[in-house]
Nucleic acid binder design. Structure first.
Lengths: 341, 341
DNA sequence: ATGAAAGCGCTAACAC
DNA sequence: GTGTTAGCGCTTTCAT
């Protein structure tokens, strides 16, 4: 196998008896260059199969055309969709992306920031890990800001960072959920809440409480918590279902949580939705597959990713624009698991 | 927000009245350095919160401690597991990873190679896209090789590249499948084959045919094809099931394919497994969730990722070692969809 | 054991 | 409009 050395602007310059600076200018669309040289240079570049060395460019300019993405878990369909949305907008703008997973761990998130700062990414789009939320540690994010790297948060956000962000409108969709529950005649609602340090889970809880009080003060609400794993949701469900008067519907803060309830219902031989109705959050792929299929909230991951990336490019055009907070409208997907008719 | 300039070896050198070269040597573990200076340097580095600039290092040395990963789709649980396996081994060895998705498209795969070569990744671990297999275009891979970048293939591989690779032992597990079918008394087997340009799908077909002939020549086999989408699997299933004598079991080449069959069975009001048994490939998360749950082949993504990354690090230690082909043993997960008892 | 100097490939400030 | 020069931060001969 022959090792090819890739062509540099020096090679192009040498071939044309010009200087590297001229070549650089011609290639980068600098205006003060004659049409003739520009043509010569681009042609020679093509002939030599020149490809710019992004590393050198980045080192020199201090910024790469790269967007860093940090998510808790790429296996989660919601995050995978967000990534797809970001990638789409990024590639339209000739930016590349680097994806990092935290697996909900703080130190992996810190490490991800280091990796991305090392790459001089132009900005970092992220949804923080559970541990980050729990510990409230934000030094790594401050560090990114102090290195002049833009931060944009999506889904799970931290208000103290005060960055641009893209979030879901929980108020509206939760109202839909509540009305749907009222509509179906449910009297006792079991709620499996996520870690309250994570803003979205805290909101899901408080908004639910507020709206129940407002629209259906007679409904009973019982709340337990889980740590986002399926196992802990099973435990939470068991707790709710072992009450003297058990709930007739359980709302779980995630679809994996709903799955835990589903497990427990099976275990306790409760039929869904007849004995127990069930609703989740995220509209994961499998909510449509299980029997009965599970009512869930479609959080529009693709749009969220697109929106987050778009904020970055808009801000690039107009750096002085104020903070933008994009609020998307999730959609309640009513399925069999909550439909008794 | 105050912008912090990160410390460089120059800062350390200046603070100690030494040269950058000395600092570099002290930090990189060069032997010809006095214990005293090494101590001084490391302490000052810590004090100044020095973090090496990987870009500069990479540009200078021509190689980064980075592993590039290219997969068709990170949403696919199998590939997500592989990525997790690679990340695990990589981070143990202080390497970072860059993940690229091709969405089964050739031009995205070519672009991914360019991105990774631009990053001077030490090696690229990949499973090629359907379109790459279909078109047989390998120039981008040759290009990587000609830039002296190691390539390691996993799962879907291309023999002409002759690289190290990690694959699944289809022979053994397919024999298990066939014996299981015989065991359950199935007489007519419907097979939904994947694109035959992709080696694993070609193998699944030929091995199945060979083994049926060998172990159960009396069984009837009918084969149709699909393009890896759920929709096309539905069409394939309809074709199989509309035959005068329809199959009593369908083996699909992927789990998504099995899902297509499942859709069609529902549509045609065939009960699984009583009217039609069903088996998939990959052991996706949802195969356990649907009712009845679906028999599938666990392809051990995590181990595959670990193995692929390990090959790279082994080869780094011993560059002259011969080509390694690691063959993993997948596991047949027998579930309700094929069990009539 | 340490310093001096060159260079990875590119861009940008300053000349003319 | 183009050339000259310096430098992003690091490593690596070649000196001594």
């Amino acid at each position: 196998m022959k090792i090819t050395k890739r062509a540099t602007i020096y090679d192009i310059a040498a071939a044309l008896n010009k200087t590297p600076a001229t070549v650089s200018r011609a290639l980068s669309g600098n205006t003060r260059i004659s049409a003739a040289t520009r043509k010569e240079v681009t042609e020679m570049a093509k002939k030599l199969n020149y490809q710019p060395n992004v590393l050198a460019h980045t080192l020199r300019t201090g910024s790469a055309k790269t967007i860093g993405i940090i998510v808790p878990d790429i296996t989660n369909n919601f995050f995978a969709k967000i990534i797809a949305g970001i990638e789409e907008v990024a590639s339209q703008n000739k930016y590349t992306t680097i994806i990092c997973q935290t697996h909900e761990e703080l130190n992996k998130e810190q490490h991800a920031i280091d990796t991305l700062l090392n790459q001089y990414v132009a900005c970092i789009l992220f949804s923080h890990s559970a541990e980050t939320a729990k510990t409230g540690r934000l030094e790594h994010m401050q560090k990114a800001l102090s290195h002049n790297t833009k931060l944009i948060q999506f889904d799970r956000t931290n208000a103290t960072l005060n960055t641009d962000c893209v979030i879901n409108d929980i108020e509206n969709v939760m109202e839909e959920v509540v009305r749907h529950f009222i509509d179906q005649g449910y009297k006792r609602i079991g709620f499996i809440a996520g870690p309250q340090e994570i803003d979205i889970f805290e909101k899901r809880k408080t908004v639910l409480e507020k709206q129940l009080q407002q629209f259906a003060p007679s409904l009973k609400l019982q709340t337990t918590f889980f740590d986002l794993t399926r196992e802990s949701s099973r435990a939470a469900a068991r707790k709710l279902l072992s009450a003297k008067k058990r709930p007739d519907v359980i709302l779980a803060s995630t679809d994996l949580g709903a799955l835990g309830v589903w497990d427990t219902a099976k275990e306790m031989q409760l039929r869904i939705p007849d004995d127990l109705a069930l609703c989740g959050f995220s509209n994961e792929f499998y909510t449509e597959l299980v029997t009965p299929n599970i009512t869930s909230v479609n959080q529009r991951g693709l749009e969220m990713g697109q929106a987050a990336a778009s904020i970055f490019f808009e801000r690039n055009k107009d750096p002085k624009a104020g903070r933008s907070v994009i609020v998307l409208k999730p959609e309640l997907m009513i399925r069999e698991s909550t439909t008794r008719k």
